[in-house]
């Protein structure tokens, strides 16, 4: 028999007994980041391959929507920071070993590219907005109009850069988690591709929802079908990887194979988020209907969020350590006034 207990009480909030350092904010950020990456890739692809006419929504409107999505995502990331006043510190330092640092800098580069692509699509995508912007006092004529003009000129090369950055952004959302050796459930190189494909899939789903024409809708329905199949394969490989990993990984994967996150993972993510859309989109291979495609797309988006949520939440619960307080650790909340303000010394 082996008994391992703590002789002192370890009750650091959100570190013990289970790490819950990252909540919905990070899951949302990873989801929206992936979605934005998907939108960037597809809009770049539509422009670069001269499909502006066949996929007008993707080419003209998606960049602006993606820009807003990414801004919201960064907003939730900001919400998660415990020391918000220091947020600017992300941009006084580049740590090549920190995915978080890479992500911060990728975002900085993605934003102007996204913005320029959005401007380039503006005259066709949002003509009224474009004209309003052009008529802005002071900067309208002097800045906005030339910018829109310039972005239109460099749209082609910009689109190619956008595809590259979109892929980087999509992979980064996965690498952010898989870079942590300390969390066995995250420690798989498959997380990068998985999150990228999921990001592309959710991007495609949003394009289906906003598609300007039946043709555009059908195009992205078919693309999404392929992505879902790849994503399922990657999820399958990820589980295989975990089951054949080290002892900690083998143990951790049981959180989605019978453990706390099983229902959310299998029914929510795999079932509703992948299998149902897969079925619906396969059925629509020849001819898609707006309603069914819409339902499938919403499910893909929900599934995309659930994937991030399950991964973020579950991964934190896996650790190299296993502390067992012999005394009731919640009694220390009395000292901390219930964990909200532990600063007062007595």
């Amino acid at each position: 028999m082996r008994e391992e207990v703590l002789a002192s009480v370890l009750a650091n909030p959100r570190v013990e007994p289970h790490l819950a350092i990252w909540g919905w904010q990070i899951a949302t950020y990873l989801f929206l980041g992936g979605l934005a990456a998907g939108l960037l890739v597809f809009s770049g692809w539509a422009v670069a391959t001269r499909r502006v006419g066949r996929a007008p929504f993707a080419a003209n409107r998606a960049p602006l929507i993606g820009l807003v999505v990414l801004a919201i995502g960064m907003g939730t990331l900001f919400l998660d920071l415990e020391r918000k006043i220091n947020v600017w510190r992300f941009y006084t330092h580049l740590n090549p070993t920190s995915p978080m640092s890479w992500g911060a800098w990728i975002l900085i580069v993605v934003f102007p590219v996204f913005a320029l692509l959005a401007l380039a699509g503006l005259p066709d995508g949002f003509p009224r907005l474009a004209s309003k912007l052009r008529e802005l006092p002071v900067i309208g004529k002097s800045l906005v109009a030339p910018l829109i003009g310039m972005s239109g000129v460099i749209r082609g090369p910009l689109a190619i850069v956008g595809i590259g950055l979109g892929v980087a952004l999509g992979i980064y959302t996965g690498v952010l988690l898989s870079g942590f050796n300390a969390r066995p459930f995250w420690h798989s190189a498959l997380l990068g591709p998985l999150f990228l494909v999921s990001g592309l899939s959710t991007g495609a789903a949003l394009l289906i929802l906003g598609a300007a024409t039946a043709e555009e809708r059908h195009l992205f329905s078919r693309i999404d079908l392929g992505l879902i199949i790849v994503e399922m394969a990657l999820v399958f490989l990820f589980l295989i990887d975990m089951l054949n990993g080290d002892a900690l990984q083998q143990h951790s994967v049981f959180l989605v194979l019978g453990g706390d996150a099983t229902e959310l993972f299998w029914i929510g993510f795999i079932g509703l988020g992948l299998a149902v859309p897969l079925t619906l989109e396969t059925a629509m291979w020849q001819r898609s209907t707006a309603l069914i495609a819409g339902v499938a797309s919403v499910l893909v988006l929900v599934g995309g969020f659930l994937l991030r949520d399950v991964m973020v939440t579950t991964g934190q619960q896996t650790s190299w350590t296993s502390f067992h307080n012999q005394f009731n650790a919640s009694l220390l909340a009395k000292l901390r006034t219930d964990g909200e303000n532990p600063n007062g010394r007595f």
């Binding site: 028999m1 009480v9 009731n328 009694l331 220390l332 000292l335």
Partner: peptide, 17 residues
């Protein structure tokens, strides 16, 4: 004593398995 309470807030009864 709040400092010592933090280390051991209650006693526990030891019972053989």
């Amino acid at each position: 004593n709040p400092v010592l309470y933090q280390l051991m807030p209650e006693n526990v009864v030891w019972i053989h398995p």
